[in-house]
Structure formats: C-alpha cells, structure tokens
Design a protein around this nucleic acid. Structure first.
Lengths: 224, 224
DNA sequence: CCAAAAGTGTTGGTTTTACACCCATGG
DNA sequence: CCATGGGTGTAAAACCAACACTTTTGG
C-alpha cells in the first residue's frame, strides 16, 4: 500500500439556454493562480463526501440551484494542471432549465453567463473541459432525452427545436423535427397554448417520463 | 484553499476475445482487504504521473503488455468504497487483440481470464465498474471502430463478426453484417487468404485508418 | 462426394430528407 | 388586411431486416 496523496476537486460545466443561445456559467477567480481569469464553478471534495455530492454541494453553494440534471464528465489528472500542486479535477456537466434564476446573491461581476461556443480564455485546463462537455452535450442531445432539461416543464415544439439548434449549431427543418420528436411518443400534448408574440399561440407539451421508460426498455436511450 | 486529501488509484478493465468469448482479466488479491477475491488490475497513481500514464504503467506491470487501446471510463468516489480509507478509483478500459499473450511471468493462479458476462464475485465496487465497462464497450463497438482493437492486424470478416456477436451477445446475419461493414469503406481487402479448418479459405482484411479518418470528418464516428 | 465454412442478392418495410403553403391571432 | 410564427403532407432516396443457396477446399 502506497500512492501519492492528491487533492481532488470537482468542476462543473453548467449549461443553459438564454435568448436562443447555449450559455455556460463562468466565475471570475478572485485569488491566484489565474486571478482575474474565468473558470468553472467548483471546489474541493470534502472528507466523507462522494464525488456526486461534492458536485451538488458546489453547485448549490455557487449558484443557489439544486435539483438539476448533473452527470460526471471526465477526470483530468495532468500533474501540472494546477500550479499549486497536485489537484485532480473530476468534471461534471449540469443542465439548467431556461426559466431558472441563479441566486441573486451571486455577484454579477463574479459570475456570468457566456455563449458556450464563444467563451473567453479560461483558467487551468478548463478549455479542454469545456470542449469535452460540448461534445458530450451534442451527443446526448441526439441520443437521449437530456434536451428537456434545458426547458421549463411546459414548452412548445418550437422552443424544443431551438434547443436542438442552439446546441447542434445548425438549423433544423420544422416539419421533420416535429415528426421525429412526436414519433418517439415521449411528449404529452397539453390543452394549454402559449402566446409568444402577436401571432397564433403555440400548443404546449410536457415531457412524459412514462413513455420515456418504454424507450429505455427498447434500448433506444443510451445510459451515459 | 482547502480540501480533503485522498489517495487515487487506477483500475483497468482489460477485455479480450478468446475462443469467441469476451473475456476480462482479473487478479486475485493476496492481501486484505478482500484477500482472495478477484479484482481488476490497478494501483495507486504516483507523484507527477498523469492518470493515463498510471493506467499504462499498471497495465504494463501487471500484464507485460503495452501499446494497447486504453480509455478512461469513469471515476468512482464513494467515501466508503475502500475499507482502508479514502481511495478514489479512476477506472479505465483496455482492449487487447486476441493474439496477444500476457507476460509469462504472470502467475496463472493470480491472474486469469474470465468470461466478461459471467465473472465471479469481485472485490470493492468492481462489479459496478465491470457493468459500466460492458455498457461502454457495447456502445462503442456499434458506433466507433474500437472493435478492430480486439483482432489481430489481419482478420477475416467472420472473425470480425464473431467480435460483434461476442460483445453484443446476439447472433448477427452474415450477409447484412458484411454489407454494412464493407459499405463503411474502412477495410482494405488483402490478397491473402486464411485457412481455419478444412473448408474454403477466407479472405483477409485489414483496418484502413485513412478511410476511417474520412468517416470521422463526416461525423459518423463518435469521439468517446 | 462429403463436410464445413465462405461468399453472395433481393425484396418489403421503415426511415430520412427535401421541400411550400395555409392558419390563427392581434393590431 | 397585414405581419408573425404555428402548423401540416408527400415523394424520392437511403437504409434496414429477413431470408437460402452456391462455392471452395481437404479428406
């Protein structure tokens, strides 16, 4: 029994959709190293705390949100990634539905949303983490149901399409998109409508978890 | 700056194909905890060593093989997963081509291949790691080109089909399988043949990386 | 000539893509 | 009656699943 002793941090890539743009939450570092640079929210894992619990705790501490979609992304362990010494980063990615607000205590100067595809220079190796998170998000959007996590409980089909377009970075055909989504039978059409502008109100839908379970059974949803 | 101090280990799920069966390498633990139980090869990450380097080193130390397909799988950090104290496990999975032999020094009593879908009881939380590795392997087999890593440089289409069948756990149609693989245009047909039994010799193929690169460009191969 | 695995096409159903117009609403 | 986004169908191409016989070889 041997082995070097290491400190372990979690870093969380939090995505949301604002004004039809995929955005990521960054925090400006107030202390060295990389003081003044933008970085992902995160922090050290505590004694007797699981990795998932640490990620949830940091998320809650830094943004005030809980009960969000969260999954482990990758572990970065280059011995030189942190100039302070050996720090392992277990990265997570989280999806925040577009109607949710950060805790108002979160100082606007220190925490800001940036377009995920046009982020500033990042501290540490966080650029690599972001790239990896984007790959993962694009992939999961197409093959799983995580896309709904970026929307409120009730949403229109056009809003859902905007999520796909913002993440994938390309326009989709409205008719084909609707046919494909509806054929999955994972949405429940509501009687309610929503007026967005001056035009015809759009029907609202909600994600139907029971239908989703059937899909999992058919092996159509990938578990990671 | 704070944070609990943790020891970090890598654990490696090594798959290969023997006699048409997907197998996984296990090592019998000679010391507590879980003395006598089977576990994945692995060990502690050293000072100034990256996670990937640690995984490669352990692989080489415990099996004598190097230059294999290796990718990070997931990090397990339940604080109670190791009775000795806080040990993080960064799990990896590796694919060994079927013709490669372990170092003969590897004692047959202490290191053995087991059918991956019928493994014995495992130490620590290694059962969870194995399940996760199998999910990942099945998925990557269908969507990437990792399948070739389980075969020698030159192989017949039937051998390739056996890899798919062993990993996916179901029979595939020979004609459909061949059409699908050949349509990808990632194989180069060789002039050589290989006689396996008494019957008609089978044509040999090799994986063609240049064609593979074209596929990546078309977005048909997922990068993880 | 027998046994064994290699090799090879067709058809029907499903899925995907490309594409354009009418509808409901408020002002 | 205009502007705006909501909502809808069809046809061609590509893809997928099911299915059986002939070929080559050594003994």
């Amino acid at each position: 029994m041997s082995g070097g002793v290491v400190r372990v941090a979690v870093d969380i890539v939090i995505f949301t959709l604002r004004e039809g743009v995929l955005q990521v939450l960054l925090i400006r570092r107030g202390v060295p190293p990389f003081k003044g640079k933008w970085a992902f929210p995160g922090g050290f894992v505590e004694e007797a705390e699981s990795l998932d619990a640490a990620a949830l705790r940091e998320l809650e501490e830094e943004t005030g949100v809980s009960d969000v979609y969260l999954e482990q992304l990758y572990s970065f362990g280059d011995p030189k990634r942190d100039p302070r010494g050996r720090v392992l980063s277990i990265s997570y990615f989280a999806l925040l539905s577009s109607e949710r607000e950060l805790r108002s205590g979160t100082d606007a100067v220190d925490a800001r949303w940036f377009p995920a595809y046009d982020a500033p220079r990042l501290a540490f190796d966080h650029r690599k983490i972001l790239d990896y998170a984007l790959v993962r998000l694009r992939y999961k959007l197409e093959w799983t149901t995580v896309g709904f996590e970026l929307l409120p409980k009730k949403f229109t089909l056009t809003e859902l399409q905007r999520v796909f377009e913002a993440v994938l970075g390309r326009k989709l055909d409205k008719r084909n998109f609707r046919r494909k989504i509806l054929k999955l039978e994972i949405l429940r059409a509501l009687d309610e409508r929503q007026r967005v502008g001056v035009q015809r109100p759009a029907r609202l839908y909600k994600f139907s978890a029971t239908e989703f379970e059937k899909l999992r059974g058919r092996g159509m949803i990938f578990p990671f």
